[in-house]
Design a protein around this nucleic acid. Sequence first.
DNA 1: CGGAAAATTGAATCCTTTT
DNA 2: GAAAAGGATTCAATTTTCC
Lengths: 368, 368
Amino acid sequence: MNKTIAKGAATALPLNTILDGDCIERMASMPSNSIDMIFADPPYNLQLKGQLHRPDNSMVDAVDDEWDQFSSFGVYDHFTRAWLKEARRILKPNGALWVIGSYHNIFRVGSALQDEGFWILNDVVWRKSNPMPNFRGKRYTNAHETMIWASKSEGAKYTFNYEALKSLNEGIQMRSDWVMPICTGHERLKDANGDKAHPTQKPEALLHRILVGSTNPGDVVLDPFFGTGTTGAVAKMLGREYIGIEREESYRKVAEARIKGVRKFDREALQVSASKRAEPRVPFGQLVERGMLRPGEELYSMNRRHKAKVRADGTLIGDNIKGSIHQVGAHLENAPSCNGWTYWCFKKDGKTVPIDVLRQQIRAEMQN
Amino acid sequence: MNKTIAKGAATALPLNTILDGDCIERMASMPSNSIDMIFADPPYNLQLKGQLHRPDNSMVDAVDDEWDQFSSFGVYDHFTRAWLKEARRILKPNGALWVIGSYHNIFRVGSALQDEGFWILNDVVWRKSNPMPNFRGKRYTNAHETMIWASKSEGAKYTFNYEALKSLNEGIQMRSDWVMPICTGHERLKDANGDKAHPTQKPEALLHRILVGSTNPGDVVLDPFFGTGTTGAVAKMLGREYIGIEREESYRKVAEARIKGVRKFDREALQVSASKRAEPRVPFGQLVERGMLRPGEELYSMNRRHKAKVRADGTLIGDNIKGSIHQVGAHLENAPSCNGWTYWCFKKDGKTVPIDVLRQQIRAEMQN
DNA sequence: CGGAAAATTGAATCCTTTT
DNA sequence: GAAAAGGATTCAATTTTCC
């Protein structure tokens, strides 16, 4: 019954559309536990005083739009808590939130989301390879922005495509600092006058990494501060469903046209390196049942220091110890745990071969 | 009159000593408006639960000290506001605060200091060149910590040695992200048993840059969480006065001995030799994230005999083979290894161009 | 003694399924 | 829901051991 309701609610979501209006109100009308991931790029509360000039006296086109003005931290905090509360409600239990901000607002946002019950998984730094210099030489070049990645609550599961991210980084575990250029050139959207269509357009590369790492194809991604639709554009490319909320009509129009021109990558390209954890479980006993290993046959530890005999029920027996391949390995190594599949080897034609090779054989057969 | 009082108060400060006890109480007994700079490395409130083992089954020596235990965010916030309030009071009107933290606590600290009236000047990211990996592959490598630099109030003056920092950075304006290794080797202080004397000793290079940038010789630097005295040691080298507060006797003793052995640099020694940086490694995945190559796009081998398709995670898929650009190249050529960068080409305007051209483009951007 | 290989270690909110 | 069992997982740098 629950399932039916949830499903009905989920199919009622306005997938792949850009909603008009205030994001708090719009989210309030969405069903609970229905969104896989939320990417939010809220107003930064920049509080820029006066105008900023470059050394050559040209003027810097700063973010001074009406939507970025908050009269005090209190007002900003109130707004922040309100949208975070709705965001958390509509997120699936195993969903996740990404927020981006600068030092002007990120500490408010981070505190607020912790207070609302989100559980921070990482903070990630976007290190800009081409930031705007500090023209007056009064501070450090503001060369980064901060993102927070959080699950709905402590202990919740979350999507993390570890292997895919590792592949993106040439085989090395992805770190919490990402080097990427700011959005310029052809990617930067212009309005009819040739001015930039949005003051803080985010690079698609940033969203690419976030979506590949934290969602799967078919997942629903919501962006409550849609702007000119970078989230939607990248979601479409990557075969994810998007929902945008944006109150400025001009931004919505630009986003609409932009996403229309985006093509989804073909299915094969969307396949991503899978984790071993996703592979089907093979009981060691199957190797014995199939005759790949025979009862009484001896296995040798990787380090050649120990051996044990295979028994008909798929357990091992060694010196003073009986049990699974993992238990016996852990006991012999005096370790808290042991992966028996990679620990034990058998002899074949005089060579020593890890038993994991046999597991892979079985898995390959299962594919067919 | 004011000036005389302030001066009198300043000379009464316990310069170049390490004070015993709780930092809030100790600061409470110091005169207002008397300190030039405060560097604070407060407890991070890590909230670690169980134990963590490396893949080789060795155990990670966690920070589980009593001083890092707080029963809730509320308790931590209360503590944070209390020390920040005293810190701000004793700071000179043109003084500044530096705080370091991780995602566990930095958002609490940042919000609190804004609420207390501090004015954030920058957040600065310490990017660790050799962080501890994420052993279970469940999150991003925690490869950075965050520092906040703040003046006593909005509009206050503050010390910023722009040119000195620019020199430290090979003539380029210093950015808000600093790459430095963690504190290991000879610099890492050991106790009588040969174990680390403090679980979270900070590298001297970090304090060096902070003190060169934010203080002048003769300035008074206070560290309310002194630990084993990195702040004091570097302050002494650089000809600044320090005051440390530390409640653990064992840390105080180590710090005392350490600082005793430090010699003040003579002027020439303060010149820092610049090191040339190696060519940065560019993961192939970045070309995909940045849209320079699109998932599904075909690459062609130099010899035109093979082709393969790009996937969204930066791997290639060819006939019966998936993997990195190097792995697929090596497999197709039946070679032990292959430099994918020079092996693969893509089509542009009908011409075949090596993908290495794209890598060079990225490197050029990074130089800026 | 020199060089190579092995061991050690770092502010970490670090698992999932079956019984 | 608790307890037991299966089994997946690491990068850079320094220090120690081995040959």
